[in-house]
Design a protein around this nucleic acid. Structure first.
Lengths: 207, 207
DNA sequence: GTCTATATGGCGATAGAC
DNA sequence: GTCTATCGCCATATAGAC
């Protein structure tokens, strides 16, 4: 839409693009703290210094705003993982790195933790988004572990499917404990430990 | 309070106790689907066939109702695990069994999944409840794995602390994927697989 | 592009009748 | 013990001025 063209850096629409971005950043923080239902457009508007009607000039309604926030974050995440990944084995190293980075982004961690459970309800506006997202993430993990299996680097008794599901589950669950009590768990260290346990590769949390 | 005495099965307070129970069960379902902030007292009241004022006759306010729901569920869970546990090793078998049983209790799984993430916010009324609950659960798991370690039945490289944290994280994360797409994961099978991977004990999902 | 004003409706909680 | 009625507040969304 408005993201790619030259029109966004100059000309009459420059300010609009900037305002949209500011709204998206504010909405991310609000939805991360309060979830979709409880986070209000007025909270978002106040954070960017305008009225709720002003926000609704840029996004048709609240659901459209949520979808835009999620799409924007997913795009950034996919790009980051792709940037760090050269082959299928390094995808898992990239994952550990991402977990480490996330330890300094509490709001974004909370956004996904809160919304992904809130969206388990069939009638939640982001239900489809998260069902698709998890299906894609499982497929991504299957490919990474399948590459290791072909080289005989999965521990005996470990299957591609259970390693894929287990890795995602562990990351999600670690986030809950970490959000409730940041001092209680070291997310990236625990993830590295798990990956080292199911493969013959050594993973480390530190860079 | 009103739970223990003979007064609850007969006499003038019998009906009150029944009504309280009905309200607690309705509230569980509402909070499970919508969380605390979005789940309304009117929804709870409609489900038990009375007005919201009627509900507030039995529970001082909405927060008191939430606390009662959580205390009631925790009590039932602790009792169930204790019933199934004879020594520290069997505690882990009981956990697998509990995961299997939970696969037929979607509402209760959702209650904890939704509320535990919603409650990561410092100002959430159930924040303290969940911080305490996770601390206690981690301690319970530490004791179970420590007993196995004393008998030399932990796999090399596995520590008591990481096994405790990892087991809880895996259970929580599996629930998210399962709630979003029940056909995509077998919670108890994956838990059994994980436990078999970190110990020298064989765990099975089936009874 | 942003505002104020407003329509419409849900919320938690209280007061008081029965 | 439960109801109806009500208060005060906040929500989303729209209409129309500037």
């Amino acid at each position: 839409m408005s993201g790619g063209g030259a029109s966004s850096s100059r000309g009459p629409y420059r300010k609009t693009a900037e305002t949209r971005t500011a709204i998206l950043e504010a909405a991310l923080e609000i939805f991360a703290v309060s979830g979709f239902h409880s986070g209000s457009l007025r909270d978002v508007a106040r954070r960017v210094g305008m009225s709720n009607a002003g926000v609704l000039h840029h996004f048709a309604d609240k659901e459209t705003l949520l979808a835009a926030v999620l799409d924007r974050r997913d795009e950034a995440d996919v790009e980051e993982v792709r940037r760090l990944t050269s082959d299928e084995a390094s995808a898992l190293h990239a994952l550990v790195h991402l977990a480490r980075v996330n330890e300094s982004k509490l709001e974004i961690v909370r956004l996904y933790a809160v919304l992904s459970t809130e969206a388990t309800g069939l009638d939640h506006p982001a239900h489809g988004h998260f069902v698709d997202r998890y299906a894609r993430t499982r497929e991504f993990m299957r490919e990474a572990f399948a590459a290791l299996e072909r080289r005989g680097r999965l521990k005996p008794g470990v299957t591609v499917e259970s390693a894929a599901i287990g890795t995602i589950a562990l990351m999600d669950g670690l986030q809950t404990q970490w959000l409730l009590d940041p001092g209680a768990v070291d997310m990236s260290a625990e993830l590295a430990r798990y990956l080292s346990g199911v493969t013959d590769v050594e993973f480390r949390a530190a860079i």
